[in-house]
Design a protein around this nucleic acid. Sequence first.
DNA 1: ATACAATAAATGAATAGTCATTCATAATAC
DNA 2: GTATTATGAATGACTATTCATTTATTGTAT
Lengths: 199, 199
Amino acid sequence: MKAANKHTKIIHAATKVFAKKGFFNARISDIAKEAKVADGTIYLYFNNKFDILISVFEEEIGALIEQVKKLLSTEDDPRKMIEIFTRNHLSVMKKNKHLAEVIQIELRQSAKLIKDYRNNKFSEYVDIISSIIKLGQERSIYRATIRPGIAKRAFFGALDEISRVWTVGIATDYTVEEATQQILDIFLCGILEPDAPCL
Amino acid sequence: MKAANKHTKIIHAATKVFAKKGFFNARISDIAKEAKVADGTIYLYFNNKFDILISVFEEEIGALIEQVKKLLSTEDDPRKMIEIFTRNHLSVMKKNKHLAEVIQIELRQSAKLIKDYRNNKFSEYVDIISSIIKLGQERSIYRATIRPGIAKRAFFGALDEISRVWTVGIATDYTVEEATQQILDIFLCGILEPDAPCL
DNA sequence: ATACAATAAATGAATAGTCATTCATAATAC
DNA sequence: GTATTATGAATGACTATTCATTTATTGTAT
């Protein structure tokens, strides 16, 4: 089997296992079993257990960034752009529960787990939000008093917590589309210029 | 030393150690050292390591609930109530970094760590937000189309992510008061009746 | 007061189980 | 036949929990 192939297989297996058991309860042998390789094989592709986790972040979030950037590239209206980001994030998180769990839980620990790992990809992802807000401000669509660096966190935090319900498995009484509409309703009307039409 | 005293000492020590090292990297001996008791003493007050973590949640969040409910009891305007909740949450999280870290990181894992623990206290805390929203809707201050069950999560998620910056130790370029104003600006204008004055 | 016993609280070294990582060996490819 | 890739049992380090022992507290009789 080609190396790249096995590398990817291990990443996907690790995402699944980390999501199910959490980083610390995940055994290397669990990941090996899931990927259908020997325990030792994993060490041909990764330096250690932390390295696997970092790679999961980098590659899975990297793919997410590519996907949403591609979707956004065809749109010019900052209002629609926020809508696209929201719907994409929520639907990916609802569909790909393993990735959702890793982002929601393991990513938060990473600073504590691994010194000198800065989550560059994650920052890049969240910064997409602030760049949309800035664009909207330049065009006087979003209010100038909104601070993009704060709003991006508020917005991402809201999406993250909304989608957390789906992974935790609480009886979910709302769909992706309903959640998207509510988020847009709350946020857009909050960050639109006062005299702009609200939705 | 009185029993209740030692119990509390261990809880505080555990909060500190869990915050610094995370649940899995925290050794019982670390907690014992921090609390200035012997390792074995901890097992006179708690059944096991998980039990310590659950007690940290219940007691620390319990105190937080008491505090914010007391503050809210003197206020009647749903707009002011949201403001009080926001300012209180952010300032507690900025001051009590240990608690903040435990809530932001360990609490999220708890469902995976400990079967049949439902985070009742945490739900109770977040439900304060939805009850404020409902109150505002009854009085036609908040729009009826807002779903309190979704909005409470969006709101809490925003606060949580905003305050996460302070614990992670990223160079923070905003104060509690600035963050509070931004959050209120974004959310209140979003959930206020369209013809109501925006801030 | 004082001595003694009984109970409760606290200690920390020893146990027992868990797993990440290594590496001698085997299989496969070239 | 050499190089590359894969294997999985063995190693070694780590730590939650236990429990035999010590120390402190309380009660009682003299």
